[in-house]
C-alpha cells in the first residue's frame, strides 16, 4: 500500500501552508516566496488533468482565510496561475529547470502584481520595492522545488 497522489498533494500543500505562515525573523520574512503557489505549479505541471484550476481555486480560498485576506483574492490568483501552468505544461516538462524558472518568474510576477492591485484597491498601502523581492527568491528557489517534491512523493510511495 502506498500513498495516493491525492494524499501526497494534500500533504505537500499543508507543508507549504505551514511554511507560508511560519514566523521567521524580520529580514527573511520580507523575501520568503509564496510556497503554496510554487507547490501548486509543480502539481499542475505534473498532473495537469487532475490537479487543475478548481483545485487551485479551493486552495486559494483556504490561503485567503489563512492569511486574513479578502475572500477570493488568492483564489483568483492561484486559479489564473493554475490555468497558465496547465496550458504550457507540455512545453515546460521537457525543458531544464533553469529554463522553467523563466515561466515561474512570469507566474510569480503576475501573482504579486495581482496582490499589489487588489491590496491597493482595498486600502491605502505603502508598498516599497521590497514587496517584489519574493518574486525573485521564488524564481531562484524553483530549481529545488521539483526534486524535493519528487523525494516526498517517493517517500510516500515507499510507505508500506
Amino acid at each position: 500500500m502506498h500513498l495516493s497522489n491525492q494524499q501526497n498533494f494534500l500533504i505537500t500543500i499543508v507543508l507549504a501552508m505551514c511554511l507560508r505562515i511560519a514566523p521567521v525573523p524580520y529580514p527573511i520574512s520580507m523575501v520568503t516566496p509564496d510556497w503554496i503557489l510554487l507547490v501548486l505549479i509543480y502539481w499542475a505541471l505534473m498532473l495537469p488533468y487532475r490537479k487543475g484550476v478548481f483545485n487551485a481555486w479551493i486552495i486559494g480560498l483556504f490561503t485567503d482565510v489563512l492569511l486574513g485576506r479578502t475572500l477570493g483574492e488568492y483564489a483568483l490568483i492561484y486559479s489564473l496561475v493554475g490555468y497558465f501552468s496547465i496550458k504550457f505544461h507540455k512545453r515546460l516538462r521537457f525543458v531544464p529547470l533553469i529554463q522553467q524558472s523563466v515561466f515561474i518568474f512570469a507566474c510569480l510576477l503576475m501573482a504579486q502584481a495581482f496582490v499589489f492591485i487588489m491590496e491597493t484597491i482595498q486600502r491605502p498601502t505603502n508598498f516599497t520595492s521590497v514587496f517584489w523581492l519574493p518574486v525573485i527568491t521564488g524564481t531562484l528557489i524553483w530549481s529545488f522545488i521539483p526534486p524535493v517534491l519528487h523525494f516526498i512523493r517517493s517517500i510516500g510511495r515507499s510507505i508500506s
Binding site: 505562515i21 511560519a22 514566523p23 521567521v24 520574512s29 520580507m30 489563512l66 492569511l67 486574513g68 485576506r69 498601502t125 505603502n126 508598498f127 514587496f131
Partner: peptide, 8 residues
Amino acid sequence: IAVNQAPY
C-alpha cells in the same frame, strides 16, 4: 499564535 500573515 506565532504566525506570519503579510509582512506589510
